[in-house]
Nucleic acid binder design. Sequence first.
DNA 1: CATCGACTACAAGTATTCGCATAGGAATTT
DNA 2: AAATTCCTATGCGAATACTTGTAGTCGATG
Lengths: 219, 219
Amino acid sequence: MRILVVDDELDIREFVQYNLLKEGYEVACATNGREAVERAVEFRPHLILMDMMMPEMDGREACRALRANPATSKMMIVFLSAVCEEESLVECYEAGADDYITKPVSMKVLCSRVGAICKRIASGEREVFPKSSRLNEEQHSFVADSGEEVRLAVKEFEILRLLHSENRIFTREEIFNAVWGQGVVVGSRTLDVHIRHLRTKIGDNHISTYKGVGFRYEE
Amino acid sequence: MRILVVDDELDIREFVQYNLLKEGYEVACATNGREAVERAVEFRPHLILMDMMMPEMDGREACRALRANPATSKMMIVFLSAVCEEESLVECYEAGADDYITKPVSMKVLCSRVGAICKRIASGEREVFPKSSRLNEEQHSFVADSGEEVRLAVKEFEILRLLHSENRIFTREEIFNAVWGQGVVVGSRTLDVHIRHLRTKIGDNHISTYKGVGFRYEE
DNA sequence: CATCGACTACAAGTATTCGCATAGGAATTT
DNA sequence: AAATTCCTATGCGAATACTTGTAGTCGATG
């Protein structure tokens, strides 16, 4: 799990970085908002811990900039600031922050909150990175991240559309209801065959099966 | 993938051009809005990276001019500007910009965003160039890109007009409704016959069928 | 380690959809 | 009126998409 620490004060950066590293996180730093935006693109952090008041570009602006770019728009952004006035809190949320931690804060508290956030990310409750592949609704095709396009048959497309729509496991029953409709009954093997066709067309690593539960689209 | 870089400052032009060339893009430059409009016609770029403030003709005006000309109206236009005020951002979008990047920006960030845009273009999600073939309403004829003209029957013309109008798959039902009208019912094979006639007249590679979905005009 | 349930692979069968040839009748032109 | 072009219908073969059966694999569980 990668975390980007953004603060203009060296002491705080190093303190936070040291403790997060000890907890097993991968950590990168930036000293102002502008740097943060750049590093976010190249480092691809799951979580950004950012100070509010910084030179060059402050937290609010940086937050808006991050939300505006598709590559970074879904990352967790948590403000870590000494300013604990109501106003700035509201401002943060308006700028698109996910959470807010007031300074000073003990490492124990910080780590526990960071841990909670990371658990949410790991569980898939919150998607942090945008999918690089897309479905082309108008052409009934799948566009891989490499850019190449594959034409899909109707059933294949409908199954993939469902799986692709949300970042979670879909049960077999859900898939049958969504693709074939409630009343229709087809053999259970049918779905397996379509899944296999999809895998050969779009690559084996995209659809993973959860035995006894269902299927899920990944990457 | 061709990119047109428009900026009045030589340093920035060369910096951006050098880095985009290194990434494998074909790059051309212009130093103001007027030049940009001219070069866009002859260079036929997929993407135009344009500064906001320039002498002679500024970004907004150039953008509007590009949108007004059918030959350039669908190109991706992205502003690259130091002015990060809300107002100018809104102005850009009003002028018809597709995206907005604030300067200064690292090459890494720029490349990643340019890459994302190019992927969208490559996937066909966005059509950048107008179709080279066109329909002649008065003559009820089809003019191929080679210039030769084919006369079409009424039904043929109406079907082709529909397919030609948008870059997507049209279902059989849509075609029936558009060409014959809602109430009228004709045999399902009838459409196939007309499609075959069209294909023999305008070439086999233009209309592709999506089994179970519909037909689509291409190229 | 045996068993069971659930998934996969392969192969074959069934159903649907499409392309094409052909043909008769309507509309238009000569 | 005759000739030509255009529209629609129909039937069948071919191609594609979908479903099912059988057999085999995998992993968890007692």
